[in-house]
C-alpha cells in the first residue's frame, strides 16, 4: 500500500518536473529570440526616444525638421573641424578639402571631401559620421551629405563630395569647437576577411 502511494507520488513529481522544465526551456528560447529582437528594437528605441548616440544609428541623417528660417547669429563664431578616417581594408584616399573653418550659427555652409579609389577595382563604400562633443549632435543640421548614401568609385576614380550644413543657433553657448569626423568603410567585407586570414597587422590610415 505504502509502495503504491510512493509510486504515485514519484509519478506526480515526474510530471511536474516535465512541466517546469518545458516552461524554463520556453524562457530560454524566448530570451535567445529577445537577443535578436534587440537589433530592431535598439534602433527603434534610440530613434523614438531621441537617445541615439552620435547619429551612427541612422547614418547621420540629421535633417532640420523645424522648417523655420533660422536667424543668423552674427555675433557668434563656432569653429568646425573636419576629420577623416579610413577603416581597415579600404584602399581609398579620403580627406577634407578644408580642415577647419569658423561659422556663424544659422548660416548655411558648403564644404567638400576628396576621395580617390586606389584599390584597382570598383568599390562601394559608406561613410559613417561622428560628432564630438556628442552634445552638439542634434544642433548639427546636414542638408546634403555624401554620407546619406553609399558611394561608388571605379578603379582610380576620384571625386569631390559635397557636404552642406547649418549649425543651429540654439547650440549651447559653452560649445565653441565641434569636430565632424567621417570614417569610410568598405561595404564588401571580403577584403577584411582576407586580411584576417593572412594575419596582417592593422593599417588604419589617418589623414587629417
Amino acid at each position: 500500500m505504502r509502495d503504491k502511494t510512493l509510486q504515485n507520488g514519484l509519478e506526480q513529481t515526474h510530471e511536474k518536473n516535465k512541466k517546469t522544465t518545458r516552461l524554463l526551456l520556453l524562457i530560454v528560447v524566448g530570451m535567445f529570440g529577445f537577443g535578436f529582437a534587440m537589433v530592431p528594437l535598439y534602433r527603434l528605441v534610440c530613434n523614438v526616444a531621441g537617445i541615439g548616440i552620435s547619429g551612427a544609428a541612422n547614418s547621420g541623417r540629421i535633417i532640420d525638421k523645424s522648417g523655420h528660417p533660422r536667424s543668423i547669429d552674427k555675433e557668434r563664431l563656432v569653429t568646425i573641424q573636419f576629420d577623416s578616417l579610413i577603416n581597415e581594408g579600404l584602399q581609398w584616399e579620403f580627406h577634407p578639402l578644408v580642415k577647419e573653418m569658423k561659422v556663424h550659427p544659422g548660416k548655411p555652409y558648403e564644404v567638400s571631401y576628396y576621395a580617390k579609389n586606389n584599390s584597382g577595382k570598383k568599390v562601394v563604400a559608406q561613410a559613417i559620421p561622428g560628432i564630438t562633443p556628442w552634445q552638439a549632435t542634434s544642433y548639427f543640421h546636414k542638408t546634403e551629405c555624401f554620407c546619406f548614401t553609399q558611394q561608388t568609385l571605379d578603379s582610380g576614380e576620384e571625386k569631390d563630395m559635397p557636404l552642406k550644413f547649418i549649425i543651429d543657433p540654439d547650440l549651447p553657448k559653452d560649445i565653441k569647437v565641434v569636430t565632424l569626423s567621417y570614417t569610410f568603410m568598405d561595404t564588401d567585407r571580403s577584403s577584411l576577411r582576407k586580411k584576417r586570414e593572412l594575419n596582417l597587422p592593422s593599417d588604419n590610415k589617418h589623414k587629417g
Binding site: V29, F34, G35, F36, Q126, I128, T187, R189
Partner: peptide, 29 residues
C-alpha cells in the same frame, strides 16, 4: 536562464558578422 541565451545570441551575431556577411555590429553595413 534569462541572461545566458542573450549572450549566446550576441556571440552568434558576432559569428555571423565574421563569416556570413551580416552587419549586426558593422557600421559600414
Amino acid at each position: 536562464i534569462i541572461i545566458a541565451p542573450v549572450l549566446a545570441g550576441g556571440v552568434t551575431m558576432l559569428l555571423f558578422d565574421r563569416h556570413f556577411g551580416t552587419s549586426f555590429f558593422d557600421a559600414a553595413g
